[in-house]
């Protein structure tokens, strides 16, 4: 999911490092040897730019991702669910912070990255441009969206860039509860009243295809997978991860007594994999372009929080400056 925009960007900087052949060779052999690259180490500019783009997209996704579920904090149907949801949405904010912190080691500030997000020039995972009209959507997000995210993220724990890999280890550890709580919500609904069951099925219908699309375009149309793999920023292709996710998730849906909204879905004995129907990439492109159901609302909400918080951030800085001046005077 976090790799989707990457595949269409960054080609221009790939060939700038020819004058630094030995440095580049040394860098690549380090990567090949599964050594980690650390912030102050030499790295090709394209590697740096690719990482900044990928890590910040990932961070933005966490931050925007607070909104669809945050929508239900005040209406969670029990106090236990409310506590879990607050903790989960808080985790997402925390994960965004871990990731911005990793991106900042590459020489870009969090404020610059946030400006890119708010200006609409940076991408974030399209999945968060879908609405959460019912409580079941909170369950579906935890089960499917976090499930897909974990699938994407676990390989990044071994990414060649140290700070990104370390942030991802922390995130994966913390996220294991996210998917489980989502599944638990779905299970409660699926086994509840007919109305609840319908709510769960509707949510699955809404979130299935967007979740499948989180893994990004087909390998055939994905341009930079090879370079990212060589740099060990990416370790599996979009289609490999997508297949893995489907193979794991379809039986879970069956367990819940829910139907995956794909009439072509079938188990293939020969390959021991599920075969899915065609993905509507036109919809994917549209949401990516900004024409999804909630693109505008999500960004506007973030912008409003940023704008309405400006006076607070400025006041804190002004106070700290005054304090420093007072201390200098007193000294």
């Amino acid at each position: 999911m976090y790799t989707q925009g990457l595949d269409s960007l960054g080609a221009d900087c790939l060939h700038q490092a020819t004058d630094a052949v030995t440095l580049e060779q040394r860098f690549q052999s380090k990567v090949d040897a599964d050594d980690r690259i650390e912030p102050k180490d030499w790295m090709p500019d394209a590697y740096r730019q690719t990482l900044i783009r990928q890590i910040s997209q990932h961070a933005h996704s966490e931050i925007v991702g607070m909104l669809p579920e945050g929508n239900w904090i005040t209406r969670a149907p029990s106090l236990r669910r409310k506590a879990v949801l607050i903790a989960k949405v808080q985790d997402e904010g925390g994960h965004g912070m871990y990731l911005y912190s990793a991106a900042e080691t590459l020489g870009i500030s969090r404020d610059e990255l946030l400006e890119q997000l708010l200006a609409g020039t940076a991408k974030y995972s399209s999945i968060f441009n879908y609405p959460t009209p019912t409580w079941a959507d909170v369950g579906a997000i935890g089960w499917l969206v976090d499930g897909a995210a974990i699938m994407n993220q676990i390989p990044i724990c071994r990414c060649s860039y140290g700070p990104y890999a370390r942030a991802m280890v922390r995130i994966c550890k913390e996220e294991s509860f996210h998917q489980r709580q989502g599944f638990e919500i779905m299970m409660t609904l699926a086994r509840g009243t007919p109305e609840q069951h319908r709510m769960a099925q509707d949510a699955l219908n809404r979130w299935w295809w967007p979740s499948i699309m989180m893994f990004g375009p087909n390998d055939a149309t994905s341009k930079h997978t090879a370079q990212s793999m060589r740099w060990k920023i990416k370790r599996f292709s979009n289609d490999e991860l997508r297949q893995k996710f489907i193979d794991i998730t379809v039986p879970q849906a069956e367990f819940l007594g829910l139907t995956v909204p794909d009439p072509d879905m079938r188990w293939d004995e020969a390959t021991q994999h599920y075969v899915h129907g065609p993905i509507d990439w036109k919809e994917f492109e549209e949401v990516l372009k900004g024409n999804g159901p909630c693109n505008r609302e999500r960004l506007e909400t973030r912008r409003r929080a940023h704008d309405e918080g400006r006076w607070v951030r400025e006041a804190a800085l002004a106070y700290a400056e005054k304090q420093r001046a007072r201390e200098t005077q007193a000294a």
């Binding site: 912070m97 871990y98 912190s101 106070y319 700290a320």
Partner: peptide, 11 residues
Amino acid sequence: VGSIHAVDARQ
């Protein structure tokens, strides 16, 4: 473990 933003040491 990582970094954070703050205006002063206490924060």
